[in-house]
Computed example of a mutant assay.
Amino acid sequence: MATKTREPQPIDAYLASLTDPAAKKTLRALRMQLRKLLPGATETISYRMPTFKVDGNAVAGFAFFKTHCGYYPFSGGVVPALKSELDGYTTSKSGITFPPDQPLPVKLVKMLVQARLAEIATRGKKPAVASRKALITERVTDAAVKEATGRDWKAWMRALDKAGGAGLNHKQLVAHLAREVESGWWQQSISVAYEQARGKRVVGETAATGFQVGVVRTLPMSAPQVWEWLTTQPDHWLGAGATLKLEKGSRYEVPKRRGAPAVHGEIRVVKPGQRLRMTWQPDGWKKPATLQFTLTPKPRGVSLVVHMEKLPDAKAREVMRERWSEILTGLAKD
């Protein structure tokens, strides 16, 4: 009887292409661990990196960039929520970098995966009535929160009311919960749930900036190099055929192309090597959003923050999150 051979996967080719022995060994081991943590997950390449997806949701990704490895939970919330556990690592809101010969501890990877899965569970499917179904208490069951934290939602609301939660800001709520709840992710989730329940937080947006999104990458480049990329290669981040003149008040345009609408806007702030702020309005949007790039030099490169405000809805927010994540990941690999 012939032995059935496993068909090569996209990640196989990625790992085979690595020339750094330590990186290859570390990422192969990480892949095997993710397989155990995510049985049945789809293994693919997303944003040019090996990615594990569960029910269509990207849960974990990893890559090698010249001198370091990176782990990415495909979320801007997981890394900040696990800040204390990641002390000592180089992090951004969306990822962790580490030397090829110093793999992430097994326990830490498990925590990152669990936090991402919990985040996806709280998000759930897109509801027909977003203003109601976006509430965390309606998307995370009492059983789930009680199993993880020892109290159901009603008990947490009563406990926080008794502790004077109505008079605490978000940071203070999280600090209060940290005394009893170990998980940073659950600290954040319970705080947000309380704020929503007591009318202290508008679901999905803020009054001042509307729907917003931020993507951060620490790049193995200097600030002048990244600024040069922004100013001389706008077609790489604005779109093919983009025209851009970096002067306050100047207008820019990106022609319509297959699969993407035309975009236009105006330059608002130019601080060479530091910050670029502009409006962003694709065809079909009633009002422009704002787009800002901020560069901050780091010991091993530069932190590039892309932030958008006044987006029209949650769908646009997710589209922009994916767009800028892909662009910055590509820049980091170039």
Rank of each mutant, 00 (worst) to 15 (best):
Q196A: 10
K154E: 06
T149W: 05
T137S: 10
A193Y: 13
G204M: 10
V203K: 08
G167P: 03
D161T: 13
V145G: 04
Q187E: 03
A197G: 02
G204H: 05
G199S: 09
V174I: 13
A148Q: 13
R151Q: 14
A175S: 12
I190P: 08
D142K: 11
K200F: 09
G164F: 07
S131T: 04
K154V: 11
E147S: 15
I136P: 09
N169I: 04
D152C: 05
T149E: 09
R132S: 12
A159G: 01
S189M: 15
A163T: 01
W185H: 08
D161L: 09
H176L: 15
R158A: 09
G164H: 00
D152F: 04
V140P: 00
V140W: 12
A175Q: 13
E180Y: 00
G199N: 07
A134Y: 12
D142L: 08
R139L: 11
L135M: 11
E182T: 14
R132N: 11
A159C: 00
L173C: 06
N169Y: 03
H176T: 10
R198D: 00
G167R: 15
A155H: 10
Q188F: 01
G165C: 02
A144S: 15
Y194H: 06
A163H: 02
E138G: 08
K162P: 06
L168E: 00
H170V: 01
L135W: 05
E147N: 07
G204V: 12
L177I: 07
S191K: 00
A197D: 10
H176A: 14
R198T: 15
S131Q: 04
E182A: 14
A143T: 11
G167D: 15
K162H: 09
V202A: 14
V192E: 09
H170A: 01
A144W: 11
E147A: 15
R201P: 01
R132G: 04
